[in-house]
Each structure stands twice: as C-alpha cells, then as structure tokens.
C-alpha cells in the first residue's frame, strides 16, 4: 500500500500554490493529508504533484470579523476544537469537532481539507450547510465566494474550480436572542464516519418563541441537506413536539437516501428524522439555558 510516484512542492503563499495548481492538471493540494494520503496509499488517487498548503500561515487563523467567524482553510481541526472564540461564538462548530475522527487525525486534518473533500458524512460540511457558511477560494489571482448551499455537489464533488485553492470559510454569527445548538450522529464505532447526523441551531426569545432555526442532516444523501420546511414551520412559533416529527418526516420524504454496507436507506431516513428531532430538542433546551449574553 504505497502511493504512486509524484512530485512535491511546498509553495510559500497562496498565489504560488494557485500557479502550481494551474500549471499541472494532475496536481492536487494536500492539507492535513488525513483523507488524501489513504486514498493515495490505496492508489485510488494518483496526483502527479502534491502542493502542500499546510504551512502557509496566511491560511491558518480563526478570527471574528463583520459578524462572521472566519477560519483559514489550513487551520488544523485540533485548533478549532480548542479555540475559545469558536466555543463562545460558534457553539455548533465546537460541538461537532470532537466527532471528527480521533485526536491524532484532528492534529493534522484541516478545516479546508474536510470541506474540499466533501464527504457526505463530514461534520464540518454539515455545519457549513446548516449555518449558511460562505467559502472563499482563490484562483489565478482572483478571489471567489461560494455559499455552502452551492458548494457541495455530490460525494467528494464540489463547486470549487479545478485550479482553485480554498482559502477561508465564514460562518455568520447569530446575535438575535438566546442561541442554542444540538448535534447528534450515529455510527458503528464512536469515531467512525456517521451513518446519519443532524445539527440544529436555534434562537428563542424571552417568550419561548423560536426566532430563528437552522436544521441540517448529514450522511443520508450525497450532500448535507437542510430541512427547510421544518425551519419554516418552526420559526416564529412556539415549538410543538407533536407536530415536529411529522414535519421532519415530511421534509425527508423525497430525499434520495443512500444505502451502503453500513446502513440501509430506510434506516438512514428514519434515523435522520429521529436525530433531527433530538438535535432540535437539544437546541431549544440549551437556548433556554444559555440566555442572551452567551452571544
């Protein structure tokens, strides 16, 4: 299990990375390598050149700006996991981090690598879709933005142009009311990729009315999805447990659900509803607990 031969470059900055990428059709970016290297070892991926962006410091940061939390693409997952700004401003992101592989994979794996890899079960992809993140890339000296809702196209397929380097992901910070989050996933072993995952973020006002809600489901179909019908039904209302499950089931009814070695399609559809419900329930409960000063 040895990779096929390739050339290795470590550009000093993003533009050099982009130039290298543009100059070689078979070139691929390597960030944390936690997905790419196994694929190469099995020779399922055989880039002619690896462009290592993991040490470009301009791609590694976490900062709050303009009501957003911006994270550089090459920021290691372990850094996000332990970051105090993430913990307070982006609790949903903080909640999913420990579920991404193991400590040893998070020590190398990056935020941008996970997003660019677009695994349907990736927790970061789910959060990006759920919170309407924006992804910024650079290509041939120009920056471009893609909303998360358009970024993920299929399993390991994204809207990122061929010769582009992902630079940043920006998550809007919600400031309207008491924020609460919920996240659940099911996998065979605790640290495996999920069969089904669900993430929810809500704000409730003093009267317990749900002001805003985002609910996303991962791993059930080719890309993470939002349950928009449920969001519409809930926002502006006082949550009613009895109506919630049918609403979620309705929202999932037309989804083209994946079946594989690990989980059947009916399982995924059914459990997606369960986990979505649990994520919303947890989010509502934690919103009530946290109070407004939390955000």
């Amino acid at each position: 299990m040895k990779a096929a031969p390739f050339e290795y470059s470590r550009p000093a900055d993003i533009d050099e990375a982009c130039a290298l990428l543009g100059g070689d059709e078979g070139a691929r970016i390597i960030a944390g390598g936690q997905t790419l290297v196994p694929m190469m070892a099995m020779r399922l991926s055989r880039p002619t050149r690896l462009i290592d962006v993991s040490r470009i410091s301009a791609l590694s940061y976490i900062r709050e700006e303009d009501g957003h939390l911006a994270i550089g693409a090459a920021t290691r997952q372990c850094v996000v996991e332990n970051d105090p700004i993430v913990a307070t401003r982006m609790p949903l992101l903080a909640a999913v981090m420990p579920w991404i592989g193991h400590a040893a994979t998070r020590a190398r794996g990056t935020v941008g690598g996970s997003l660019a890899n677009a695994d349907p079960a990736a927790e970061l992809a789910l959060v990006a879709v759920t919170l309407d993140a924006t992804l910024t890339y650079r290509e041939a000296g120009r920056n471009g933005d893609i909303p998360a809702s358009e970024f993920f196209i299929g399993p390991t397929i994204t809207a990122l142009p061929m010769a582009a380097c992902l630079m940043e992901v920006r998550f809007p910070i919600w400031r309207d009311g008491h924020i609460g989050v919920g996240f659940h996933e099911v996998s065979a072993r605790r640290s495996d990729f999920a069969f089904v995952s669900a993430a929810a973020q809500v704000t409730v006002d003093e009267d317990g009315i749900c002001r805003r809600i985002a609910i996303g489901v991962g791993a059930v179909t080719d890309v993470p999805i939002r349950l928009e019908r449920v969001e519409q039904e809930l926002s502006g209302n006082r949550p009613d447990a009895a109506r919630l499950r049918p609403a979620i089931e309705g929202a999932l009814a037309d989804v083209d659900v994946t079946a594989d070695l690990h989980a059947s399609a009916p399982y995924r559809r059914r459990v997606a509803a369960t986990l979505a419900l649990r994520a919303i329930t947890d989010a509502l409960a934690s919103a009530k607990q946290r109070g407004p000063d939390a955000c």
């Binding site: 290795y8 470590r10 390597i30 936690q34 290297v37 070892a41 290592d52 993991s54 020590a107």
Partner: peptide, 13 residues
Amino acid sequence: GAAVRSCLMFAVQ
C-alpha cells in the same frame, strides 16, 4: 508533541 499517524505524512512534509 502531538500524536499523529506517521503513515499519513510524507517524510518530505
């Protein structure tokens, strides 16, 4: 100081 998998890093990195 961090535990990592040495099979997922190339020596040149």
